[in-house]
């Protein structure tokens, strides 16, 4: 293993985040805080509690997931797409590194940033809403697996994208709608029966449900199924990355 290379990519990617603190940290924290204020503190007080949890507290896990999913995807895709776009990717491709080390560096940095972001949002939520965490270990595990999984997805998007617009398509047009419709703001048991079944095809449902269970011990789907689904997504994305590097598709000719 070329750990020096992993460290070089990892630190370089984190440095990129710290160079743009407003865009990387402040902006997502601010926009999530607005949700807490509007849906938690303001409207939330007029809403009925769900599964015995106040509405303001109920949406916290979902909102963290929403931010973490989109930020992991876009940050990771941007991280690998920028050197591709500028041409400086030559240094990564000509270095004595394997795909494993490249992924560890880029995805590790993106996942770290998302974990930090998730932590900041969790702390920020405390200013607006009262909440508890029933299973802190599981909460951290769900958060970590989600950060890694969606950073892997972003990495794939960055490898395959051939324009800035395509970088944004998946985070904005797929991940965000899935997160909104995946039980971020509601329990799927509140939906008509038909839509409850349709919603089960939305992968984000399993992430939000499992994450929410780690907070309040209530979930829309079995927590074991949630964990299995996250692992399934993660290994699917890993398999896809392995194939891309093996064939050189969109990376080497």
């Amino acid at each position: 293993m070329n750990w020096y290379a992993v460290k070089a990519i990892y630190l370089s990617e984190l440095a990129r985040t710290w160079r743009t603190p407003l865009q990387s940290i402040a902006s997502p924290v601010l926009s999530t805080s607005l949700y807490f204020i509007v849906f938690g503190a303001a409207i939330g007080s007029a809403m009925v509690s769900i599964d015995g949890v106040s509405y303001g507290a109920f949406i916290i896990p979902g909102l963290i997931m929403l931010t973490v999913l989109t930020e992991s995807t876009s940050n990771s895709s941007f991280g690998i797409y920028m050197p591709k776009w500028s041409g400086s990717i030559y240094e990564v491709l000509s270095a004595p590194v394997s795909a494993v080390e490249i992924v560890l560096g880029y995805v590790g940095a993106a996942a770290t940033k998302s974990m930090v972001l998730g932590g900041i949002i969790l702390l920020t939520a405390r200013f607006f809403v009262d909440y508890s965490i029933l299973h802190p270990f599981w909460m951290l595990l769900f958060l970590l697996l989600t950060c890694i999984t969606f950073s892997l997805l972003g990495f794939i998007i960055g490898l395959l994208a051939d324009g800035f617009e395509k970088l944004q398509v998946v985070p904005l047009m797929i991940v965000t709608p899935l997160a909104f419709l995946g039980g971020t703001f509601y329990s799927i048991s509140m939906l008509p029966e038909f839509w409850q079944k349709v919603t089960l095809f939305n992968p984000v449902v399993y992430l939000v449900s499992g994450f929410r269970w780690s907070f309040y011990g209530v979930s829309d789907v079995n927590v074991g199924v949630s964990l299995a689904m996250i692992l399934l997504f993660m290994f699917s994305f890993l398999l896809m990355i392995w194939w891309i590097f093996k064939t050189g598709y969109k990376v080497k000719v």
Partner: peptide
């Protein structure tokens, strides 16, 4: 520094 690290 990045380049040196990349090459192990």
């Amino acid at each position: 520094v990045f380049s040196r690290g990349m090459f192990g």
